[in-house]
Structure formats: structure tokens, C-alpha cells
Nucleic acid binder design. Sequence first.
DNA 1: GCCAACGTTGGC
DNA 2: GCCAACGTTGGC
Length: 156
Amino acid sequence: MLQYWLMKSEPDAFSIDDLKKQGASPWDGVRNYQARNFMKTMKVGDLVFFYHSSCQPAGIAGIAKVTRSAYPDFTCWDTKSAYYDPKSTKETPRWYMVDIDLVEKFSRIIPLSTLKQDPELANMLLVKKGSRLSVMPVQASEWQHILSSTRFYLTH
DNA sequence: GCCAACGTTGGC
DNA sequence: GCCAACGTTGGC
């Protein structure tokens, strides 16, 4: 069963254009258990809203797909990496990542403010107060609503 | 296992 | 750069 997700990245660190340039890329650096657990349940083919955070405007930049299911995040073994974690060993890895590839870059960002204004998305995790998860599930109904309600906006 | 202190996220 | 809302750590 196909599942939908939303993944946040600061475009200064890794943007949707970077994904387009690089092709299938590891989503490394997640150091939050809840986000990790969500990634562990991802399957190849699952679809992902690529979200730009900590920028102007913050919002959904496009769509990606999962091209490799969860495997150990190698950046936690790299002592030079900002994501280095001595508690994660090769025998018992603590952190995992998936690979994703670009499906579609939107012609414009769908701003967070737009999503927040939409009453149909009131229950979406992303717009919930205090939601800081960098990887979160998206309901199929929310996914389809966002796409159908923004198609016009995106193509004009 | 509680919880205070500290660290991080991310919109604004 | 502020700060609310979380998550994590570690002493007890």
C-alpha cells in the first residue's frame, strides 16, 4: 500500500534543486527517533512532499519518491560529520535513512501560510502547533487535496 | 522513573 | 535573533 510523507530540509543545506542535480540521494542526518521510525516504515515507491524549512517562504517545493528503503545512516560513523554519533555502531546502528529521487519540482513553493489557511488541512500534522518533526506521514486525503487545490495555483 | 537543565527546531 | 514547543540527558 502506497504511503505519503512529508520531509523537511533547509534549502541552504539540501534543496529540491540539489536533489534534481544529484538524482537519487540519501536522506541523511535525521537524529530524531520518531522521524527515524517513520523512515523505517517507508517503502520503495512511497511519495514524499519535499518541504523547504527555515527559509522564505517555507513550504512544499515539490514531490519526491522513495527509491531505497531504510538502511543505516553512514554519516553517524564519520567523525568529521556534523551528524557523527559515537553511540551508533556498525553492529547496532542507531540511525537510518532512505534514498529519495525527484518526481516533480513545483513551479512555485506552496507556502506554509497557504496550507494553514485551508480548513481541510486543519488536522494535518504539519500545521499543528509545535510540530517539529522533520519526517511525518501525510494522509492520502490530505495529499490529494493539496495537489488538486494547488494545481491551478501552480500552473498559472 | 522523575524532572530540571539544556539543546534543537523552525516560524516569525 | 527571538522564543515557544519539543526532545534529550543525566543526577538523584
